[in-house]
Simulated scan of single mutants.
Amino acid sequence: MNPGEAREQAQNHFPVADFHCDALSKLLENPSIDFWADQGLDVTGERLRAGGVRIQCFAIYLSQKWGNPRFEHILRQIELYRSKVANTGGLRPLRWKEEAARLAGGQEGGPGWGMLSLEGVDGLEGNLFYAEMIFELGVRFLGVTWNYANWAADGVLEQRNGGFTEKGRKLIKWCNRRGMLLDVSHLSEAGFWELAELSHRPFIASHSNARAICNHPRNMTDDQIRAVIAAEGRIGLTFVPWFVTDDGEAAPQDLLRHIEHICALGGEQHLMFGSDFDGIDSWVKGLEHPGHYPALAELLLRHYSEELVKGWLYGNAVSYLARNLPSAPI
């Protein structure tokens, strides 16, 4: 597609699903922030609309600078999501596969949708009753670790590279039974392979790139990428500059190398995006907030078919949700 055609298509705002941002932790640190339009956030309601983002997954992240992670920190971010994001931003909660199926079928217009994920189970304090509570409150994705060890498993920067504890293995079983989906971004390599073996539900890497292209431990090896593909999971390409290029200076076209590599491994139908907006303090130039998604769509359309681009921006994520979210209670 030539540049003029790509620009015209992108301006139609291809719908977007973004599987990771950290706006909630910023709201917890500064409750005076206005989610709708505050320049202190990368992700605002205004920018989501400008970028055509129909689904945004909001991570509940417990910063190390807050001291020992507590369940209270999780509940406070869920309440901030409800009061400041869902209400003021006009986002509907996406919790059930029936809702995702309607989105996949193009039957839902109007305001966008928000999802909740937990980035690191530290704040669950080893208590599966707490896990049940956050499921009932709408959390649907669970990242087992941040970068370091917790009660369930080792993170990717934990030097011993351990796997799951006994409590962690019980957590995997609970997630599979309850319908809580698992996220391997930040998980140690040993933990990744243990989860891949123990989980009978497809899992995701919400915000990780290809290590063969950028050699960062938070990116995935080719074998890990193949395992996510084989499990019918999803890989959310992220806009963290130091996960995109080895020198940490990145432009949008640098993402194409990761796309090409993952597609060469068989991942055309398994790619999506997980920006990590509000979790970074430097940005891919030209991708500083979700309002720039149309420019990314325009770039992709110059190199790939409309069908593939629509899949990467939205379709692959929604089809995963329609198959794997839990069913709504009758």
Results as ranks from 00 to 15, higher is better:
71 F>Q: 07
80 L>F: 02
141 F>E: 01
135 F>M: 08
62 L>N: 04
129 F>R: 12
99 E>I: 13
137 L>I: 03
116 L>R: 07
134 I>P: 01
98 E>L: 13
128 L>Q: 04
77 Q>M: 03
147 N>T: 15
96 W>G: 01
146 W>L: 14
94 L>D: 09
125 E>K: 02
79 E>I: 00
146 W>T: 11
68 N>K: 14
94 L>N: 12
130 Y>A: 13
141 F>K: 02
65 K>R: 13
124 L>Q: 03
63 S>L: 11
63 S>G: 07
85 V>S: 00
100 A>I: 11
100 A>G: 07
95 R>Y: 04
89 G>R: 01
71 F>V: 02
59 A>E: 04
69 P>E: 08
98 E>M: 10
133 M>C: 06
126 G>D: 09
102 R>D: 15
147 N>I: 09
97 K>F: 06
144 V>A: 14
62 L>A: 00
147 N>Q: 07
130 Y>V: 01
106 G>M: 13
86 A>T: 01
111 P>V: 12
111 P>F: 13
126 G>P: 05
131 A>D: 04
75 L>W: 03
91 L>C: 09
136 E>F: 05
120 G>W: 07
148 Y>R: 15
121 V>W: 06
138 G>Q: 00
67 G>P: 03
105 G>A: 15
85 V>L: 00
106 G>F: 15
88 T>H: 10
63 S>Y: 05
132 E>T: 12
129 F>E: 15
